[in-house]
Design a protein around this nucleic acid. Structure first.
Lengths: 155, 155
DNA sequence: CAATATTAAATCGTGTGCTATGTAATAGCA
DNA sequence: TGCTATTACATAGCACACGATTTAATATTG
């Protein structure tokens, strides 16, 4: 009578545990960030992805859609409707480029530019919610960026 | 003729830069993870969130929807349709609890259980894409979990 | 025991994010 | 110069994620 079970053929159990997955830590942290940002950005009338777009434009106004997409690692099907909604809100304009009509230039309106001052408290409030040192934040950030760049290279 | 501009009233510019935001590092890292997981999980017929649900059930079969939600920090509007699709794929069953009919118990089917072995290579392939040490991964994971818990406490 | 409050899940509506596809403009080549 | 290939963006369809609301079951209270 053979009581000895064969060794499992799959990955050792602990590598397939939810909490062993770095991706789940990233995913669930992002869920947490969304929760915090949703509250903070509600007063500004922005969703989190819209806020990211505004951050990009506040830094460098008048970009092509593709340039915004490159900056945020987002594609056209995501950006086009999102930018349309920002345009409807009067925060940006979308104009065909005169030199190349395939390109759409996204520019801040006065209201869009003015929104930057209203959003000035956001990073501080987020830092408060995080409740950890600037050094930790900076270290985490640069490590995540390195991972992101590795992941984005997969093809 | 006053050539001196008044100091800006908003947050110092570097705090409102996109790349200064930890949340953007997390967000864009998750975009990268999605890209990698989408490819790996395609052969299993799973999306990334569905994979997370399967990880939970492989660990502990027969949970209530709310228990899965607590485990993954996800709400009913997300989980109900997702679980329905897993049921349609024949990977889980959803049954009303006899002792409390408000509760739905989610159980793995034979196919759902068997899928675990097919998914055995996933964590290893992800680790390869990450191209960094297990120690780094573990450290990042625990730090992110700490942040997540802080963020989730905001209310 | 009946009425009310609470709980668990389902549904609805909105905004993403991505693959696939379509449209229009520009570039490149013979 | 005309044709083809490439580029930039828009659209379509699907799967999330979440606040708001609804439905049904259970718990609590008088």
């Amino acid at each position: 009578m053979d009581r000895k079970k064969p060794p499992p053929e799959q990955t050792p159990p602990d590598l397939q545990r939810l909490d062993a997955q770095l991706c789940f830590a990233v995913y669930s942290t992002m869920l947490g960030f969304n929760k915090v940002y949703r509250k903070l950005l509600k007063a500004l009338g922005l969703t989190y992805p819209q806020y990211l777009v505004m951050l990009v434009l506040w830094e460098h106004d008048g970009l092509r859609v593709s340039e915004i997409g490159e900056r945020l690692f987002l594609d056209f099907p995501t950006l086009t409707p999102l930018l349309k909604r920002l345009e409807v809100q009067g925060l940006v304009t979308r104009r065909r480029s005169a030199s190349d009509e395939r390109q759409v230039i996204v520019s801040l309106t006065e209201a869009g530019t003015a929104l930057k001052a209203q959003a000035a408290d956001v990073p501080g409030c987020v830092a408060t919610a995080l409740d950890c040192s600037l050094e930790t934040i900076g270290d985490l950030r640069s490590r995540l960026v390195a991972l992101r760049n590795n992941l984005m290279q997969q093809d």
